[in-house]
Amino acid sequence: MSSAHSKLYSDDVSLVVIVVDTNPFFWAAAALPFADFFANLVHFVNSLLLLNHLNRVVVIAAGVSSCSYIFDSSDASAAGGVGVTATFDKASRKVEEFIAQDARATAGNGSVVSGNAASLLSGALSLALCYIQRIFRSGTRHPQPRILCLQGSPDGPEQYVAVMNSIFSAQRSMVPIDSCIVGTQDSAFLQQASYITGGVYLKPQELNGLFQYLAVVFATDLHSRTFLRLPKTLGVDFRASCFCHKKTIDMGYVCSVCLSIFCKNQKKCSTCGSEFSRVMPDLNSMPDQSK
């Protein structure tokens, strides 16, 4: 990566990939209506584009069973002429289409228990990282990338492996993941993501002033972050999900070969196939096995 980073702009030019939670189960019950939230988001995107003409912003919507790109500022400027308002109208239409499509997919899927569905964070993060890699590999110089997750719905423990893989790949390519929680409960995934990648994790107290939170904390470019006092995370929930039942666990068994996590004692690792010949003592008497 060293060669890629020498081509970074030294200044505050940034590429911001925003992952927006469009989970209808969450927004139906949320304190802040989605329309208001979206207006705040448009404000924020506009302000990022205002700060530097080379800034690029990409918005990715994460639904319940699919995710997709809904806005790319480089398309908008290439199309030109039509005006920014038109571009944002197009983006909001795209969001509506996406939500409808996602709802159809969810209904067809049938596996989701309504009322407690998680958004596809892992998929959206992967899309974001793919986009950033594409930028890394093209052109002579590129902006400094970062990801911002605006999440409301609860974590989906079944995505644990995929999310962690995305987080580590973001860490490897030095892409900070910022997270702003617009829902009521903290997200363990995003706490870990921001902690590992050096991003900012924030759960705003007052959602009506969402734009001010976004402008003060999340509009800060990576260059300025070294100087500023930004909110620090108080505690990080490091709990993992087991690979066998996708449950969040406090304590479990870890494969000594591939570090897969299981909630129950297994004879053979389902991930790498190593056989555990020695019979493990009962979990309750071995507290240091926990991860």
């Binding site: 200044d11 302000s47 530097n52 402008a215 003060v216 800060t220 470019d221 300025s224 100087f227 500023l228």
Partner: peptide, 12 residues
Amino acid sequence: PLAKKYALQMLY
């Protein structure tokens, strides 16, 4: 960059 950030912060 820092001044830009301040301006944005004070915007409202």
